[in-house]
Structure formats: C-alpha cells, structure tokens
Amino acid sequence: HNLTITQGKLFFHYNPKLCLSEIHKMEEVSGTKGRQERNDIALKTNGDQASCENELLKFSYIRTSFDKILLRWEPYWPPDFRDLLGFMLFYKEAPYQNVTEFDGQDACGSNSWTVVDIDPPLRSNDPKSQNHPGWLMRGLKPWTQYAIFVKTLVTFSDERRTYGAKSDIIYVQTDATNPSVPLDPISVSNSSSQIILKWKPPSDPNGNITHYLVFWERQAEDSELFELDYCLKGLKLPSRTWSPPFESEDSQKHNQSEYEDSAGECCSCPKTDSQILKELEESSFRKTFEDYLHNVVFVPRKTSSGTGAEDPRPSRKRRSLGDVGNVTVAVPTVAAFPNTSSTSVPTSPEEHRPFEKVVNKESLVISGLRHFTGYRIELQACNQDTPEERCSVAAYVSARTMPEAKADDIVGPVTHEIFENNVVHLMWQEPKEPNGLIVLYEVSYRRYGDEELHLCVSRKHFALERGCRLRGLSPGNYSVRIRATSLAGNGSWTEPTYFYVTDYLDVPSNIA
C-alpha cells in the first residue's frame, strides 16, 4: 500500500525493539523526510534493546553428524571492536523451508527459537588472519532439518551509529543413524509349514526405512522333555500350542467401542483428552525405555581390526524358502538304536541362519518350516543398504507352526516275539517326523474274553527296548493296539495285532 503524509511529521519514542533503520525507511515511504526535528525521533529510546544489523554474515563451514552440527561463519568486528559482546545463534526444527525470524513471537518477546549466546573469538592483530567464530550444536535429532541463523550482539553506541551483522536463515539436516526397533511384532501360524509375521514401523526411523531383515531359527525343545518319565503317576503330560491366527481386521481397528449394538453396526467412541494424553505418555515412556535398553543392555560386537582377528559373527547367506525346513542338525536320541526319531534339535552355532529381506511392506510369510516346531524370529529395521547396512537392534518374537495331521501315527506293522515265561516283546517304529517329539506310547492289549488293559511306555523305555515287553501273560489269544502321544496330543491307534500265548508248562520236552 502507498502511504503519503502531505502535512505533519513523524514522532517515535520509547520503541526499544524498533531499529532506527526501520524508522528511516518509514520517513522515505511516507514522504516526511526532512520535516522531523532532532528530538522527534529519539536516538536513545528507539532500538536500544534490539540488534540492528546492516551487514550480512556468511557461514564459512558446515559439518553434520547424526546428532551434531558444527558451524563456522566469517569474522565480524565493528569499528570499535570492544562493542562486540558476542553472537546469538538461533535454531529450531523446520520440516519445511518457510521459516521466518519472527515465527511464534508474542507480545512478551518470546519466540519459538532456541538461542545460544556465543563469546567472540580472540581478536588477531592481523586483519587478514582473524579467527572464524563458530559453535557445535549438540543433542539434535537424527535425520531432522533445522533452520539456523546467527547475528551479532553489540553494545549501545553513544554516537548512535547503527552497526551489526546478521546471516540469512539456512537449512541444515542432520545425518541418518540406526533406527529404533520395529514396533509390535506379531507372529502367527496359518499352516503346519508357515508363519505369518506382521509389525509396525519404528517410532524413530532416523532416516528413510529402506528394508527390513527377518531372521528365523528353529528352537530346540526343553531338555526336561527328553529326561522326564511322563508315565509316572502324578506327572502331567506336557503340551505345546501353536500360535493362533490373526483376529479379523475389524476387531483390530483402534479407537473402536468394545460393545456392539445388537441391531447392527455401531460407531466408534472418540477417545477423551485424558485417554489420548495417557497414550502419549505411555508411548514416550516406551521410547525412553527402549533407548535405555539399547544403550545399557546391548553391547556392540567388536569388529575385526587390522591384526587379522576374525569377526566372530557368522556370515549372512541367503537361502531359498524351500530350504528352511531342514535348518537344524538332527541327532538321534540314543545312538545305539537307529530307529528312534531325530527330534532332539541342538543347533550348531556355526550354522548360517536363513533370512529374508523385506522391502516396502511390514509383513512376511515364512514358508518351508517344520510342522509343530518353535521358531525364534528376529526382526531388524534398516535405513541404508549400501555401502553397508545400517540397521536397528533386533526385536524378537516366537511362534510355533501348526501340527501336521497323521504325523504322530505309527507307520509300519507292530511285530512281536514270544519268549519263555510268557513274555512277549512288542516292537514298532517311532514316527519319523512327529509333531514336536514323542513323549510316550500307549499300549492297549486284551486277552479274548477279558477286559482291555493299558500300559504306558516312556520315551526312554522305548529307546532301550525298541518297544516294550509284556510279562506274566496268561495263555490265550491276544490283540494289541499302540498309539503315540506327542507334544500336540495323541496320534491314531494302530491296526490290531494278534498273537497267541501258550502255557509254557505244557511245552513238550526233548528229553527222552
């Protein structure tokens, strides 16, 4: 807008934040220059609390790290170098490059900038070799853009010569660093050979998330399962459950009422301010606690030095998902009996873990797994792929695949051998790939016309006998059925096997 004052003059007093240069501009645009008398524009009460600059400061050096910015700028000295009290560095987070010096300023003089007072450097006698002032900004957020400017702080001049310097606002972004852990990993099994893994992005990506790394490792069953005799009275049979499938998407929606109208769909109840505040506090606490764990609990591995020492970490090797089922080394339970199943799973520490690289999504279907087997899954978020990966501390989750139908069934015939004193040795093959492992066998036998009897055969007993022995049988026709019990439950009964026990007292003698 054009402003013209045809008559009258300007009068400025007691404006401590208004620089004289701005008042002189007002004289020019209003056409009143030359009308004012000496005392109409006070030299001592206008701009006496402001830094009124008329020179431009330029930054000469900028260096960044993930949490620091090192700045240096060209030296500046007023005509009387004693008038320079120091520099004021202003900075704040700036997602967009549209910041002005006066953003967030209120009537009390406060604003949204963080201000650092910096002492002037030592003055050199040689004007050509003056030290460049600077400042190291610490405690910054990774991968965050900051708006920065600097200006001088000078003393009051009796001659009211307006001098000083100020830089333009520059924008500097800190470097990326390792992201925080992925949030809320959930693993479920939808079949006997697959596990579905879902997660949420890290709360602090500290860069642009480029991919996720998912490692999985087959877990050995508890050692007590191999040692305890679950045929003993009072000892509860062990059981394991597989990871249940995901709930429906509708039930997972946030901010939804727990109660549904019987007449149909209901609208979600909005969260109160107290609920939102509580969630923010919980989120802040979780982030602080995660940072504490990362800094205190997890110790970084030592990389190899120039002395030739090897990095103890196993090298990563990509495998196809079809090879995942046989990740671990199978060892027989008892070496003397080769027909026992290889369900003991000690994992070799030198073995390469299978892994998958996930790009542009937060889910993965891990296939080719062994049925009813526990897996430990390790999830890392990465925001750099080359020249070397920059990934987060791992988040861990466990899951067990679903049982395989008929995996616990005894394959092959049940054979028998009759000894003296009416002892019958029953023999059968253990299931080759049971659900988890076989903890015991149930032997059901009966003599024709009598009630059915049951015998429990422990895992250890089966390994020693290759089956079991029935003792003290009365003469007669017998039928026997056997079924295995694994961590997933009972298998199917075998087809009945028949044998006849004679009275050993009636056996004919070869003595003449």
Results as ranks from 00 to 15, higher is better:
A488N: 13
P238K: 08
Y478A: 00
R218I: 10
T343V: 09
F462V: 05
Y498V: 06
P338T: 11
S274F: 02
I366F: 12
G449I: 10
A405H: 13
F337H: 07
R319T: 12
C267K: 09
G368Q: 07
Y504L: 14
R313F: 12
C456S: 03
S398Q: 14
V345I: 03
T307V: 09
P300D: 15
A484I: 03
N255F: 03
E417H: 04
V214I: 13
F337M: 15
D311P: 10
V334M: 10
Y375A: 01
A336C: 13
V331I: 15
G476H: 00
K278F: 07
R471Y: 15
N360D: 03
A336W: 09
Q256N: 05
V334P: 12
E249L: 10
T272F: 06
E265F: 11
E452S: 03
H371Q: 08
Y396M: 05
D506G: 13
V329T: 05
F226R: 13
T494Y: 02
T303I: 11
V501F: 08
A394M: 11
S367F: 05
D222V: 12
P332G: 10
N295V: 12
E282D: 15
S474Q: 09
Y504G: 06
F499I: 15
R353T: 04
R459P: 06
R316G: 05
A407I: 02
S341Q: 15
N383C: 10
C468A: 06
C266P: 08
Q380A: 11
T343P: 08
R316H: 13
T502N: 12
E290Y: 06
Q256C: 13
N339L: 08
R471L: 06
Q275C: 06
G472V: 07
P475M: 07
S342R: 14
Q429T: 06
K287V: 14
A336K: 13
E430L: 04
S479M: 04
S203Y: 06
Q380E: 14
I438H: 02
W216P: 05
G467F: 04
A220P: 12
P349C: 12
Q384R: 05
E420R: 14
A488F: 07
G322A: 14
K287D: 11
D311S: 14
E465F: 10
A394Y: 12
L232P: 14
R301H: 06
N477T: 03
D250S: 10
F226V: 08
F337I: 07
V296D: 11
G489F: 06
G467K: 07
M402L: 11
F462I: 03
S398H: 10
T210I: 14
R376L: 07
T333L: 06
T303Y: 15
S341T: 07
N339C: 09
L487G: 02
W216K: 11
K432F: 09
S492C: 09
A381I: 04
L379G: 00
P431T: 02
T241L: 05
F355R: 06
T340S: 13
K302D: 15
K361V: 07
E356S: 07
T272E: 12
V365R: 09
S284P: 03
Y396S: 12
E224V: 05
F215E: 03
I482K: 01
Y500T: 08
R316T: 06
I377M: 10
H352N: 05
T415R: 09
D385S: 03
S398V: 11
V457F: 06
P270D: 15
E433L: 03
S474T: 10
V214F: 10
P205S: 07
S474V: 12
I438P: 01
C269D: 12
D408S: 02
R319A: 12
F289E: 07
R240K: 15
C266D: 13
P354Y: 14
A394L: 09
M402Y: 12
G476T: 01
I418Y: 06
K432G: 04
R240P: 10
F298K: 02
G374W: 03
V324R: 08
P238F: 11
P434E: 02
V439N: 05
G436D: 10
L426F: 03
A407M: 03
T272A: 12
R466H: 11
N295K: 10
L379E: 00
G467V: 05
T386M: 06
H454M: 15
A395D: 10
Y500H: 13
F298S: 07
K317F: 14
F419L: 09
S392K: 04
V299W: 02
C468D: 01
S320M: 05
R286Y: 07
A488M: 06
K278H: 02
L505N: 09
D408H: 01
S320N: 11
I482H: 01
V214A: 07
